[in-house]
Lab assay of single mutants.
Amino acid sequence: MLEGKVKWFNSEKGFGFIEVEGQDDVFVHFSAIQGEGFKTLEEGQAVSFEIVEGNRGPQAANVTKEA
């Protein structure tokens, strides 16, 4: 699992990017966010995740919000 911070997330469109120190930003789709209820992320929020190869390159999977 990697750790990063949410760079930005558009809850209307359901996607955004996660910043990872020393690496390129990683695309995140709302469907990759773990948990119940409305799936969104806040700018600057700490998250842990895995990287998988998507249709358009690397993207986040199994995203969990850090306490």
Score class of each variant (00 low, 15 high):
L41I: 09
E42D: 11
G16V: 01
T64F: 13
A46P: 12
Q34E: 11
V28A: 04
N62C: 15
A60Y: 01
Q23R: 13
F17C: 06
A46I: 12
R56K: 13
K65N: 08
E53T: 13
G54H: 05
S11E: 08
E66V: 15
T64D: 08
E66H: 15
V28M: 06
A61D: 06
A46Y: 14
Q59Y: 14
G37C: 06
G44N: 14
E53C: 12
G37Y: 05
T64E: 08
D25N: 07
T40H: 10
G44P: 01
V28H: 03
E53D: 11
A61G: 11
Q34I: 10
G44L: 02
N62S: 09
E66S: 15
A46C: 13
D24F: 04
E36T: 12
F15P: 02
G4I: 00
L2S: 09
W8F: 10
V6D: 01
V47Q: 01
E53G: 08
K5T: 13
F49H: 00
G16I: 00
E3S: 14
L2R: 11
I51H: 04
K39Y: 04
F49W: 00
S11P: 15
G57F: 05
N10G: 04
F17P: 00
D25V: 02
T40R: 12
A60H: 00
L2E: 09
E42L: 12
K7R: 10
L41M: 07
N10V: 03
V6R: 01
N10T: 06
G35T: 11
R56I: 04
G35Q: 10
T40N: 10
Q45W: 05
G37R: 07
E36Y: 12
E50N: 13
S31R: 07
F38C: 11
A32F: 02
V26A: 04
F15S: 04
V52Q: 12
E66Y: 11
T64R: 14
F30M: 09
V52N: 09
W8D: 04
G54C: 07
I18M: 01
K39R: 11
V52F: 08
K65D: 06
V20I: 14
F49R: 01
R56L: 08
G44D: 09
G35H: 10
E3Y: 14
V20S: 09
N10F: 03
N55P: 14
V52T: 13
Q34Y: 05
Q45A: 11
V26D: 01
E50Q: 15
V52P: 02
T40L: 07
G16N: 00
V26W: 02
F38R: 11
A32N: 10
T64Q: 13
N62R: 12
L41N: 02
G4Y: 00
G16D: 01
G22H: 14
G44F: 02
I33H: 03
G16Y: 01
G4F: 00
E21Y: 12
N62L: 08
G37Q: 08
F30V: 10
V6T: 05
A46N: 11
A46K: 14
K13R: 15
G22M: 06
E19I: 07
G22C: 06
G16M: 01
L2Y: 15
V6Q: 01
V52H: 14
E42G: 09
A61W: 11
K5V: 09
V63L: 10
K5Q: 11
A32E: 09
E12Y: 15
K13Q: 09
F27Y: 09
G37E: 10
K65W: 10
S11L: 10
G37K: 09
A61P: 01
F27R: 05
T40W: 12
N62F: 08
G57Q: 05
S11H: 09
N62W: 06
Q23W: 07
A61V: 10
K65A: 09
S48Q: 14
E53A: 10
G22K: 09
M1K: 09
S48E: 12
G16F: 00
Q23I: 10
W8P: 02
V20N: 07
A60D: 00
F30T: 07
F49T: 02
M1W: 09
Q34D: 09
A32W: 01
G14H: 03
K65R: 13
G22T: 06
M1D: 03
E43A: 14
T64Y: 12
G14Q: 04
G54L: 05
V20K: 06
D24N: 14
W8C: 09
N10P: 01
F15G: 03
G4Q: 03
V26L: 09
G57Y: 05
V28G: 00
W8H: 06
H29Y: 02
Q45G: 07
E21Q: 15
F49V: 03
G22F: 05
E12K: 14
V20W: 06
V63W: 00
D24W: 04
F17M: 08
G22E: 10
G16S: 01
A67V: 15
E43R: 15
N55T: 14
D25Y: 00
F15R: 04
K5G: 02
S31M: 05
W8T: 08
E36D: 14
W8A: 05
Q45S: 09
S48P: 01
E53L: 11
E3K: 11
I51W: 06
A67E: 08
R56G: 08
F9N: 01
N62M: 11
V47T: 02
Q23P: 03
V63Q: 00
F17N: 03
N62T: 06
V20P: 03
Q59L: 12
V63T: 00
F27E: 06
Q59E: 11
K39L: 09
E50V: 10
G14C: 03
G54V: 04
E3W: 11
L2P: 04
A61T: 11
F9L: 03
K13E: 08
M1V: 10
L41D: 02
E66R: 14
E36G: 14
V26I: 12
G22A: 09
E53H: 10
F15T: 06
G57K: 05
Q59F: 12
Q45N: 11
E21F: 08
Q59R: 15
T64L: 14
A67H: 10
E43T: 15
Q23V: 08
R56N: 07
E66L: 15
A67C: 13
A61F: 15
V63K: 00
F17S: 06
G54E: 07
F27G: 03
E12N: 15
Q34K: 15
G22P: 02
K5Y: 11
E50I: 11
F9A: 03
N62G: 07
Q23D: 07
E21P: 13
E42Q: 15
V6K: 01
I18E: 02
G54N: 10
I51K: 14
A67G: 07
G14N: 03
A61I: 12
N10E: 06
W8I: 06
E3G: 09
V52I: 14
E12L: 15
F9P: 01
G35C: 11
E12S: 15
L2H: 15
Q59W: 08
V28S: 01
F27V: 04
D24M: 09
L2W: 13
N10H: 10
E12Q: 12
F17Y: 08
F27M: 05
G35W: 06
E19V: 08
Q34N: 14
Q23N: 14
G22I: 00
G22N: 10
E21L: 09
W8G: 04
G37T: 08
V52C: 12
G14T: 02
E12G: 13
K5N: 08
S48H: 11
S48I: 13
Q45T: 10
D25P: 06
F30Q: 12
K13H: 09
A60W: 01
G44Q: 07
K65M: 11
G22V: 00
G4M: 02
G4K: 01
G4C: 00
A46W: 11
V26C: 09
Q59S: 08
S48C: 13
K7T: 04
A67R: 11
G57L: 04
E43N: 15
E36W: 07
P58M: 13
V63S: 01
F38Q: 10
S31F: 01
I33P: 02
I33S: 02
F9K: 03
V28T: 04
V28L: 05
D24R: 14
S31T: 13
G35A: 13
L41R: 00
G16H: 02
A61R: 14
G35V: 07
E43V: 15
E19M: 14
T40D: 11
R56W: 06
F38N: 09
D24H: 12
F9Q: 02
E66C: 14
A32T: 05
F9V: 06
E43Y: 13
N62D: 05
E53P: 07
A32M: 07
Q23K: 13
T64H: 13
V52E: 10
G4V: 00
E42A: 13
E66N: 15
K65V: 14
Q59C: 12
E19N: 12
R56P: 06
E53M: 15
K65L: 12
V20M: 12
E42Y: 15
G54Y: 06
G4D: 01
G4A: 03
V28N: 03
F27C: 04
V28Q: 02
F38S: 09
N10Y: 04
A61H: 14
E36H: 12
V63C: 05
V47N: 02
D25T: 03
N10L: 04
K5H: 08
T64A: 12
G4L: 00
E36A: 09
G14A: 03
G35N: 07
A32I: 00
K13Y: 09
G37D: 07
K65C: 13
M1G: 11
K7N: 04
W8E: 05
V63Y: 00
K5R: 12
A32K: 08
A46G: 12
F30W: 15
G57I: 04
Q45P: 00
R56A: 07
E66G: 13
F30K: 12
